Simulated assay, not measured.
Amino acid sequence: MKGSVIWLDSVDSTNEEMKRRLKHQNSLENYDAVVANFQTNGKGQREAKWESSAGDNLTFSFYFQPNNLKVMDAFKLNQAVSILIADFLKSIGLTNVQVKWPNDIMVNEKKVCGVLIENILSKDELLESIIGIGVNVNQSRIESNSNSTSISNELQEYFQIKVIAQELISYLRKIQDFINRPALLQTRFLDLLLGLNENRKFEVKGIEVSGKILGVSSNGNLRVLIEGKEQLFEQKQIRFLFD
């Protein structure tokens, strides 16, 4: 399987670096990755800034060209990426690995990995994806109010960032295989979904509510039962609350 890894010491954002390479050099191939020792302006979901200590964590972007993936099915990509990251984390010894919708990876209900996917579309088809991933690997000091953790904190072990990067990237090169098996994709994602069929607290329009996650719709909206009525939420319309 093709795909090379580009190693950089420092960059503003690996996603932005990939965009520049696509625009000016047209030099990326399917399954290529750009890994940076440090990002000066890393981005997360909700336009948040990804905070990472230099050399302690893994920050990289992965380039993917889907095979006949419709825009209406784009959430399959989120599902495949989340499942493969979770599988990798389990392979190195982590337990209680879950996905907080839409694609935060949690260990013991604390965030260990964030994903930001930026898609390039043509009419109704998804042509290219830049998948930005940040993994807390060796960062030992985590702000108490961040609800985050690191691989090292969970396993009490130091990890070589380059080894973690190479192994995780090899997992991600199976994305198309998962997308080609939608029934398995949905089953595996629901098995990992944090809060499925559990009473949870959320924030909706600035108000705290209680609800039960029923699953996800075909286009990736979160299905939540609130006061006896099923409601559908897009990505920025609902926020998990943790004690």
Rank of each mutant, 00 (worst) to 15 (best):
E118M: 05
I117G: 00
I105Y: 01
V135K: 00
K110M: 13
K49R: 15
D87N: 14
N138T: 05
L94T: 08
S129K: 04
I83S: 02
E125W: 08
V107R: 00
N41R: 13
P66I: 06
G114S: 11
T95V: 12
E157L: 09
C113Q: 09
A165H: 06
R181Y: 09
P102R: 02
N153V: 04
L84M: 09
D177G: 04
K123M: 09
I133G: 02
R173N: 09
N78S: 15
A48V: 13
K162F: 07
Q79D: 10
A48M: 13
L172R: 02
S148G: 12
A48T: 15
L69D: 10
I142Y: 06
E109H: 14
Q176F: 12
S170R: 08
N136E: 10
E157I: 09
G93F: 13
D56L: 13
A74C: 14
L126F: 01
S170H: 11
E154Q: 13
I133P: 00
T149K: 10
S140Y: 08
G55N: 08
I151Q: 02
Q79K: 15
A86D: 01
V115Y: 03
A80T: 08
I131V: 14
I117D: 02
S53W: 07
C113R: 04
F64Y: 15
K110N: 15
L121C: 07
E128W: 02
Y171L: 03
N67F: 10
Q45F: 08
Q45N: 11
N138R: 01
E167A: 12
S144Q: 12
D177F: 10
I117A: 05
D87E: 15
V137K: 00
F64P: 01
F88R: 01
N67W: 07
S82I: 04
Y158P: 04
I164H: 02
D73T: 04
Q139T: 06
V99I: 14
I85W: 00
R181C: 11
D104H: 03
N78T: 11
K76T: 02
F75P: 13
P66T: 06
A54S: 13
W50F: 11
F64I: 04
E157N: 13
R141E: 15
Q160G: 06
Q45R: 14
R141W: 08
K90P: 02
T149N: 09
L127Y: 13
N138Y: 02
I92F: 10
S91G: 07
N108V: 07
K123N: 15
